[in-house]
Design a protein around this nucleic acid. Structure first.
Lengths: 177, 177
DNA sequence: TCCTTGGTAGTCAAATTTGACTACCAATGT
DNA sequence: ACATTGGTAGTCAAATTTGACTACCAAGGA
């Protein structure tokens, strides 16, 4: 649920007080569906959950022009903290989806911190790629399941590529002030 | 759940009649945790589900040497069919995890079919990489969320890399007879 | 007027996943 | 004897995800 939480918190942070559907639409505009699955149910569930945890404050319905227009939500102080925590976590993740969510909001972190977090992640990715390569070197190829050697190669390459992509992204961090 | 289903069916297929824990252990040996998450609960749930659907036949408990040793499972004729369906689906997927599960069992398909499926997937991956590149070319870089341009580049590269890895795997398909 | 279409907003039951927890047995130490 | 440890085998409630479904309103047509 971390990805949903981060996305929902992050969008509310951008939009200010808004209702669930606006979040849904914003995430659509952001083309989040290109890199992760997101169902309406998950968003509304996250909204409830985050509110219950005090990370969001739900308020009166906006007198929406169309449709029901029920509750609206705004991020609380605690929510801000949580957002930054989740963001740091996401940027330190190996999972491409989590990482992507982190990158989406990387501009919300001070540039120095963003750079250092990304650098750490790059190192970790490379280390892991090396580790997989090492494991693979002691595995015999085999035509039978589970084709470990092939899979290790596949994942090693992907980790390495991700590291390279991150280096590029890190590079762009300076081009904006 | 597709990945769990495929893995469980595939392992039972390899092992023959066995109980849940044996599946768990085999998946551990296969180091499946390197590339996907798998909790015991999911495995047992899948076993129940697959049995209910008639894809597995549950039989008498093996008089296991140690521990409780409850039900044992074997794959049914319908299960074989389902396994091959899922396998084809997995090999046609863009999702690295699903794809990995497919590759794990790629040897269970006739070589010609495996080659052709993988080739199709490679084409699809490349097409999608190109599509993302095209989208990215019309997106302005921005320091604010959601950093679409960076994300598109990240995913484009990953798709392209996956395609390359698959080409390598396709190459090895011939080295075994 | 009434009906249909389409976008807005969200609900809900069912399916699935999570991971902590129970229970059993065997070997080992004391 | 008996307590402890550790591996085997699985259960279960809680959390989360899925995606089909409801409900409302506005605009346009017949």
């Amino acid at each position: 649920m971390n990805v949903v939480r981060l996305l929902v918190l992050g969008v509310i942070r951008e939009l200010g007080r808004c209702h669930g559907y606006a979040i849904r639409q914003t995430l659509d505009e952001w083309q989040v569906q290109t890199w992760t699955r997101l169902h309406s149910g998950s968003i509304y569930h996250a909204l409830q959950q985050l509110t219950k945890e005090g990370l969001l404050e739900s308020g009166a319905p906006e007198p929406g022009n169309r449709g029901p227009g029920k509750l609206t939500f705004a991020i609380s102080r605690a929510g801000e903290v949580e957002f930054h925590d989740q963001l740091r976590q996401a940027l330190a993740s190996f999972d491409l989806i989590e990482l992507s969510a982190g990158i989406a909001f990387i501009g919300c972190l001070p540039k120095a911190e963003a750079t250092s977090l990304i650098s750490q992640t790059i190192e970790c990715l490379k280390d892991n790629a090396d580790r997989l390569a090492l494991i693979a070197s002691s595995v015999r190829p085999s035509p039978k399941p589970p084709r470990t050697k092939d899979l290790l190669a596949l994942w090693r390459t992907n980790l390495a590529t991700t590291a390279t992509s991150l280096e590029e992204i890190r590079g762009t961090l300076d081009t904006f002030h």
